[in-house]
Amino acid sequence: MAATSVRVAAPGARPKLPGPLELSIRAFRCWLVMYRRTWRASIWSSILGPLFYLGAMGYGLGSLVDKHGTASLGGVPYVVFVAPAVLAAHSMNSGLSNAMFPVFGGIHWNKIYIAARATMLRPVDIYRGHLLFATMRIAMNAACFVVFLGAFGLIKSWWGVFLLPASVLLGVAFAAPIAAWAVTLRTQTPMNYVIRFGSLPLMLFSGTFFPLSQLPAWIRPLAYATPLWHGVALCRALCLGNVTLGAAAIHVGYLVALTAVGLWAGSRTYYRRLYV
């Protein structure tokens, strides 16, 4: 019975596949359906988490820093210095948490990828659709935090309207390559190492909570090479309004390049892992 209905739909010729964009959006919609039912579980960590950090570090610790003098911060109060960095670190974490365990789970836990493989979606559509969903989540988290920053008066310049796209770019620059990698994993342990030895040190040492001038000179080039530092520098310049186009172009270029490498790698790793 099922066979006849297929015949009727496509007599003689093969059915025409929708375009790549349409296919990616179909994969994306699957995640959207799931999110609509489970969004409550992540609302606290995605909104309250960074506010806690802003309160404890920016305002609490900041009161001690400001007492000591803020010349090394460029003369701004510590909370103004740290707020855009918390935004950047939050975007990185959103990117990682949406592109690591859910990707691994798509193969090993809820097996959404395995189910999607049985449809007309190609591996690259599954990848792009999931990345689209991660981008949406990064943008939602970043938008909430940007609104808070504005409400607390921590955005000092009209350049601040670019904070949202900048932090989304940063999050995607992490999500695209990490998803490409996570799909290849056989066990979950390496992902814990990425958090412990990757994102945590990045968050702590990329010029987020203190200027890199506090680090020994020999280690600074390493910090300048990390994607989070570029994101932090970009967000901070946008927040404070001291944007120089050359520096901004380097930051954006670095993050775009990282995203592009991720997209290229993802189309290959997903194909290898999911093509039957």
């Binding site: 820093v65 000591h68 090394s72 945590l200 040190p201 702590l204 040492f205 203190f210 506090q214």
Partner: peptide, 20 residues
């Protein structure tokens, strides 16, 4: 897992500590 508080010690204690 033992390295996590050590990272915080270096970052907050030494890094931010220099500002305080």
């Amino acid at each position: 897992g033992a390295v996590e508080p050590l990272f915080y010690l270096l970052s907050v204690g030494v890094g931010i500590g220099g500002l305080i």
